[in-house]
Design a protein around this nucleic acid. Structure first.
Lengths: 208, 208
DNA sequence: CCAGAACGCAAGCAAGCGCTTGCATCGAAC
DNA sequence: GTTCGATGCAAGCGCTTGCTTGCGTTCTGG
């Protein structure tokens, strides 16, 4: 790993910890095991280093939804679990980026674009799902997807500071989000209209 | 307004703008029209000033839910609209506080506690609502409330930076969240089980 | 063998930081 | 009328900030 990469990794870690103002060039250089002068020789300024460090981060894991829904509950659950894990792992970076966004607008778009792409994948899947479900008529698919997305986001961002607001225990939260989501678009396994290979109404939530 | 109040207000404004590290004592004193020395004489340190400035902010408006649901759609809509407005007005402060939380843990709890209280009010209302609705059996009320809450939070925090993820237009978003929420707990106006004085399925969303 | 790029090191610069000191001013209380 | 608490003002303390300069070392390609 050359000095560029070392500095980018260190900058990403320290930025996630203390934000833009807290991430001093001396500290980044120390953590990277590189001389501070080299930092400026390679990146020109602190702003460019950090912008590059943020923008090179892969915002999401490799989870994806199939084109044709087969087992919606399982597929959505896997997708949401992957998304939630990715959000939790990037929690610190996301928090700092949202706070620094007004002062450094060139730092956030990469993260947001990744989120939007991911969201569109969910909407497309859900639309195919309700299309396959003739009895569903008046669902607001886009809003349901938005709420599911916000639930995962809020959970990842807020559970550590106000746990009472989110479903307990943490391990079962994703499943409950998906269940509630399916119910809101009228495709719940427990709904009156016949469902897929739906499992029981609250699967494997663990001890409350 | 005495110097204490002037400093508290200035500190709150500047903190919302640039966070803890960016809010320098010189800038706060200037914006308050007070000498910097007076700041230290009154508050002792920058940390105490800002902690007091954050903790004295009223986190929520005066909206509240009635004990007995009468017109759930209207009551929830009013409550959510008020909550959303309050969140949007405090958006900058909330973002900065979430980012600074790990370094200054004594600064966030006040905001979080206000949110939790508000959330509990929603849960209690929703539980009375489904209790009044005998045909509803297998709703996950807590999770539905959590998702509604997260939807309002995510909308207030994220719409300005990734608008595609949230329902359009902004003015109609709250109504759609409430509709979807009611549908997820099985009390939708368009549900098969008879509803209250429910209005049409998508009331007054405005031009799409 | 040697030019040149990449890098480390020591030092420093101007600016800003939180915070303190010393002193003059001023209005109210006794 | 005098004391006293609250405030402003000028100056400065020690430290950190982003960033630069100058120079010596190491390695590599021709």
């Amino acid at each position: 790993m050359d000095n560029r990469e070392k500095l980018l990794h260190a900058a990403g870690r320290i930025y996630a910890e203390v934000g833009f103002r807290g991430a001093t060039t001396r500290r980044i250089a120390d953590e990277a095991g590189v001389n501070e002068v080299t930092l400026f020789r390679l990146f020109g300024s602190k702003s460019q280093l950090i912008a590059e460090a943020i923008n090179c981060q892969d915002p999401m894991g490799a989870v994806s939804l199939p084109r044709i829904p087969v087992d919606p509950w399982r597929e959505l659950n896997d997708w949401c679990a992957g998304h939630a894990t990715a959000l939790r792992e990037m929690r610190a970076t996301i928090r700092k980026t949202m706070a620094d966004l007004e002062e450094h607008p060139d730092m956030g778009p990469h993260l947001c674009r990744g989120q939007t792409v991911h969201f569109n994948e969910l909407v497309a899947y859900a639309q195919r799902l309700v299309a396959l479900h003739p009895s569903v008529r008046d669902a607001d698919v886009a809003t349901s997807c938005s709420m599911l997305f916000s639930a995962l986001f809020g959970d990842a961002m807020g559970r550590d500071i106000m746990p009472m607001v989110y479903p307990q225990p943490e391990e079962g939260a994703t499943a409950r989000y998906v269940e509630t989501f399916l119910r809101s678009i009228g495709v719940a396994p427990s709904s009156a209209s016949g469902a897929w290979s739906a499992t029981s109404s609250l699967p494997a939530v663990g001890p409350a």
